[in-house]
Amino acid sequence: MSGKFQNPTQDPLLLRIFLSLVAIGFVALFLVLPLLIVFKEALADGLGKAFAAIIEPDALSAVKLSLLAAGIAVPLNTVFGISAAWAVAKHDFSGKTILVTLIDLPFSVSPVVSGLIYVLVFGLQGWFGSYLLDHDIHILFALPGIVLATIFVTFPFVARELIPLMVDQGRDEEEAAISLGASGFSTFCRVTLPNIKWGLLYAVLLCNARALGEFGAVSVVSGHIRGQTNTMPLHVELLYNNYDYVGAFAVAALLALLALLTLVFKTILEWRYADELAAMHRH
């Protein structure tokens, strides 16, 4: 690029520098600084103290609970996502628009509302509360409630990534496989799954990140029993309210590390499987 005959689709140098600085500045101020402060506060009393706050039994049980809740919610939503995508993308039926809109609904519902609805259904003052209690089934303030709230907030993630991807890929390959005598199940495993595997992985990754980090919805249904129904984000809040500032930021730093790890995996996925993902995002 020479100064005089500038490419007409390229911005002038000054504009480029200015816009780049605005972009970098905004990201630094709004995204990087909060991240830095988490690590700074966590290490305020040294690495040892931060580490101690993470391996303390209540923190470990919060880690375990978060992993367990995500471990149940993510596979269920994955199965749901695949099934919804198969029905929507590979078949024609009326009411498809409504179905897809309803699948997307939990995305724009406030997390607090997501918690509230399960209180109204399973709470002692709700629909099934007394029945469940009489049969000694605990949903609210126990693992099932936390899992349900987590499922709700991560509900559309897999479906909304897979549906456009599978629509884009069309039905020809599957139809060919079927006409050659393959069973439905083996068509799915041998034809569809290899086509969507990276998109699926990408969706599961995002779903998992959200599941581990959900606060508002889980907060409503958890009961906040230390060491029992506190997930990692709730444990951060508890420590924060407990004069244990370093501990709160140490667990927060652990969550931030998980977030960064998610971003790394996501970037690797995008970089290696750019074509499939690009196809997915073209919509």
């Binding site: 003052q125 509360g129 609210l140």
Partner: peptide, 20 residues
């Protein structure tokens, strides 16, 4: 003894909703 802490009203609400 396990203890669940929170605002007094929030805790009463949780017990009303079935916190055991």
């Amino acid at each position: 003894l396990n203890t669940s802490n929170g605002g007094s009203g929030a805790q009463a609400r949780a017990v009303i909703d079935g916190l055991q």
